[in-house]
Computed example of a mutant assay.
Amino acid sequence: MEIRQITAAERPETMFPLQAYAFTPSPWSAEESEAYRRRMRFFGTAVNLIAEEDGVALAGVASLRMRQNVRGLVHDMAGVASVASHPSARRRGLVRKLLTRLLRQVKDEGCAVSALYPFRPSFYAKFGFVGIPRRRTTTFAPEGLSELLRRDLPGSVERLPMSEGFSAYEGLAQTLLDSRHGFSVFDDVRAAEYREDPVWLAVARSGDEVVGALRYRIDGHGGTLSGSDLLTTGPLGRALLLQFLGRHVDQVARITLTVGTDDVPELWGTDLSAVTEGKVDYPRDNAPMARVLDVPALTGSRVGTGAVTVEVVDDELIGGVWSLGADDGQLTVTAGGTPSATLTVAGFSGLVYGVLDPIEVLTRGLGDVTPDAVTPLSELFPRRMPYLFADF
């Protein structure tokens, strides 16, 4: 068995059959295979690894080049995707070997963090990944937004084909990347595929500033307006987009949107009835997972107060003893010291991403935290829910 890195041009003959069999209805058609081949121009910067035997690809993994905001600091991120293996090659440890090499390689190339959508969380937990929140879906009738139609808001909304509004959309995504914890974006090569999406784009502006954007499509008169992520810089952008959606009251019966865990749609209008849910059902409706690949790279992250020394165990990438502190709200990292907590990579990543507190790390079996370390860890890494924007 040989592991080798391949180009995007090689993916259709090697990785596509594995992915198609694992994740789509099969057998697949020649048209589907050709459609995949045409998409490869958007994967030119991906890191693609396959395990081969006698020239036949038995398993493959990939990393998409992305960036992510973690506690106010934007890092290069490895978005792990395209993980699949041939049925006859499963349970042989091929994916494990591929992922081990992939994570080592992307760290060496400068990625400080990594994220993925797992087919089975317990499998990826062995690689140090910890669960982070799945974005929510909210569904409501447009008449619940009627009071917004009577408001004279300082801004406007323009409806465009995605191909025409792509620059505004990408510009807003870059703005949110700099300000929103957990937010992630693709590099320019991969993101360019969004330009070709056959969807509408609603762009909210206040003056010359883009304050909101929503990708959406309508399935028919009296049907559903299905929106993707409701992206806004704040309450004004959200109000402008909701006002625009409210104007569809005599056209659609329902509106569905994707929102973050800190959004509360039931408060968007006095008479708005909304059903908001975060469905997690493996293997199809997956919640994402993330992990830290480089501890010193976290230096400068926005944290709380205090200082603590931890030992991260059982990991060749970030294993060791790390003294962590805060200098005017920014994380400091030095190697060495006397640890008061022993953490797995998942336990450490859960604290950094803000999805676990020290007691949860202990009760989840992700570390041994002494009583003296509970308060310093809580103060240094206050709980904060990340918003992982981008499916990959």
Rank of each mutant, 00 (worst) to 15 (best):
R4P: 08
T7Y: 03
T7N: 10
E13A: 15
Q19H: 03
F23G: 11
E31L: 15
R37A: 15
G44I: 05
N48V: 05
E52L: 07
A57V: 00
A62H: 08
S63L: 03
G72K: 02
H75P: 03
A78K: 02
R91D: 00
L98R: 05
L99N: 08
A112V: 08
V113F: 03
P118K: 00
R120G: 11
S122R: 04
Y124A: 14
F127C: 08
R135C: 03
F140R: 07
E143M: 09
L145V: 12
E147W: 09
D152I: 14
S156V: 14
L160K: 07
M162P: 02
M162V: 12
S163H: 06
A173E: 07
T175Q: 05
T175S: 03
F183Y: 15
F186T: 02
W200D: 14
V203H: 06
D208Q: 10
A213L: 03
R215Q: 07
Y216H: 09
G223N: 05
S226I: 02
G227R: 10
L230Q: 09
T232Y: 01
G234Y: 01
A239K: 05
H248W: 06
H248L: 09
Q251C: 12
T261L: 12
D263W: 08
P265E: 11
G269K: 12
D271W: 09
L272R: 13
T276E: 15
P296E: 14
A307Q: 14
V310S: 10
G319P: 11
Q330A: 15
V333K: 14
L343W: 07
G350L: 04
D357P: 07
G365T: 00
V369A: 04
V369F: 00
T370N: 01
A373M: 02
V374Q: 06
T375K: 13
P376E: 05
L380T: 02
L380H: 04
P382D: 04
R383S: 15
R384A: 10
F392G: 01
